[in-house]
Design a protein around this nucleic acid. Structure first.
Lengths: 353, 353
DNA sequence: CTGTTAGCGCCTTCAC
DNA sequence: GTGAAGGCGCTAACAG
């Protein structure tokens, strides 16, 4: 790769950045036309005579004009910015989702503002409130964690909101996600098919208000009961968070119950559980099978590679952006509940014994 | 956790969001005062009589007023938004950094706009250009990958830019990062101290324009040469990217050279290398010691846990925000080059044999 | 086709 | 202490 040339004489500028901004009027004055005409050229408006266009373009280039997007947004009532509100960007699932959203938004000309809520309902409410009312963004993609269905139903945001990853049917919001119950059931059914009888689950328990957790635990229960197994409460490792650390701790607590398989509500929990099992000298998958959820990149590179449920994140990003875009255009149709595909990716951690 | 109550009668609103916005003037009309007075109350201005304040506050509450941040920004010439421009947010180091930046920015009242460049110089240039000239952000924290020193020196951004993670002294920009050469040297010295003689390196080679890679490879060379070892070219595993996959491939290519240790330029490469070694039935750390760089969360949970170089990311986030804040306030001082601490975290993957 | 004008919502200098 | 007026930079009516 060759670096582009650069005239060094222009480089030794003493100040780090240039403070003065060139406005449309500056360009208009220079070209001897009105601001309107310059605006037309900048926005590629049709009816401008060729010679006028080149004259204005010259002035634009000479002055190195850049539109002030703030002013444009204020005037147009649209910003071209979509917010993505997630509990924590450092959680691999969310950073991978954010990447997909940013990439998918690019061709639309949309910029993405990523914001964090720490999964706390107060911060979620606050962030949603400020984001939607500030005029800074045209819409919000919201991955709710702290706010349950009831609280969500009370919100009256001032811009379109699309919920990601939850599945609470009776809301006023558009929603896109996978079928969490079916997906969890698929995972657990796979573990059972591998000859496991004591399938533990690690993750949030029902006292938390995470809809996602409840749905996935339901899937676990249904899968067990459908083959006449009992979802013992001593096989449920409750955690407060979805972190590797929490998975590690929960796994240690579960060991006395002698599970022969562990279904973790997400991959980070599973990776923590893997470490605990290694320390406890339990062999994976021979003694204990492990499966996670989300299929983050890391799952492929763990030891052993982790079986996980892969949600179609590309589709989530694409559909969410499409939905929010449609609702920005016209806020009239009924809220839609969109379910995208998922697939179980079987790796070494859950091999049949 | 108890969910807050909600009057259901207010909830069945047919539209998803409310389109009309309440302005300062609406509030003023309602309170029977001028917009100026409302503004004073909203912004906590001192000289407002108590009864006036309560009257205005009532109107504010009744109408549920929210300031239009776009208009405020346009007027004040400041937005309270800082952009963070990174190659790819899904890379753990960057998502963890983004998290630190967002958290650190919060108490300042700053919002963070995360943007991606894919590490391509054209996109970096474009993004920097738009971000700084658009008026949308007050400053940019920029983690450069594609743009080398020469190209960077040519940029004339229209808002403050602070470079993260590079160390090219002669720039016009503020910069904050660790001492990459010393840090890499520390890692390799540790491997040598553990009795290793054939220390390979995995990462970008010099033909790429990544300053970071070159500096870390320099550290590798210096450490080897300082004990009379020769940095053989067949011990250098060049990669095009910093991904697990690249580390995996490079490790396989390096195996014939029979290294007894591998220094990976980042943790993702190291995790990929670990997997390759596992597949090749090489024991870590007995046969081959492995060390990474960045100390991402995942390093603690790999198998075996990964020795890594920990940069003080908290300090990077804090100092970068402080610097950009200072330069927003007054753009007059000379560019500063700030070096923050690093520490080698020794884990099982590099245990002495 | 192009110039003039008004106003998006807010803050702030100037008067009172 | 508060009201009136102007303008941040831009676009969209309305002329001409």
């Amino acid at each position: 790769m060759q670096e582009s040339m650069c005239i060094v004489a222009n480089c030794g500028f003493p100040r780090q950045h240039i403070d003065v901004a060139v406005t449309l009027r500056d360009v208009a004055a220079r070209a001897g036309v009105s601001a309107r005409t310059v605006s037309n050229v900048v926005n590629g408006f049709q009816y401008v005579s060729p010679q006028m266009r080149t004259r204005v373009q010259t002035a634009l280039d000479e002055l190195d004009y850049r539109p002030n997007l703030l002013a444009r947004s204020l005037r147009q009532g649209r910003t071209g910015v979509i917010a993505l509100l997630v509990p924590e960007i450092a959680v691999p699932y969310f950073s991978e989702l954010a990447h997909r959203v940013i990439e998918t938004a690019r061709p639309y000309g949309w910029t993405v503002l990523v914001d964090e809520s720490a999964g706390e309902s107060a911060r979620e409410r606050e962030a949603l409130d400020v984001l939607t009312a500030s005029g800074r963004v045209d819409g919000v993609l919201f991955s709710a964690l702290g706010l349950g269905g009831t609280s969500l139903a009370c919100l009256q945001p001032k811009a379109p909101v699309v919920l990601l990853g939850e599945h609470t049917a009776d809301l006023r919001f558009d929603h896109v996600g996978i079928d969490n119950v079916a997906a969890a059931r698929d995972v657990v059914a796979h573990l059972i098919a591998g000859g496991r009888r004591r399938v533990a689950a690690i993750g949030h328990d029902e006292r938390m208000h995470s809809a996602t957790s409840m749905l996935r635990l339901n899937g676990w229960r249904i899968a067990l009961e459908s083959v006449g197994l009992h979802p013992d409460s001593d096989l449920l490792g409750a955690t407060e968070m979805f972190s590797r650390r929490a998975g590690y701790d929960a796994m240690w607590r579960l060991l006395p119950a002698r599970p022969d398989a562990v279904f973790c509500l997400n991959d980070q929990l599973a990776l923590g559980a893997l470490r605990a099992l290694r320390e406890a000298r339990a062999r994976v998958p021979e003694d204990v099978a492990v499966a996670g959820f989300d299929d983050i990149d890391e799952a492929q590179y763990s030891s052993p590679p982790l079986t996980s449920l892969h949600p179609d994140t590309d589709a989530i990003a694409a559909e969410a952006l499409r939905m929010v875009g449609e609702r920005i255009a016209h806020n009239d149709r009924a809220p839609r509940n969109m379910i995208v595909n998922h697939a179980l990716i079987v790796r070494e951690s859950s091999a049949r014994r």
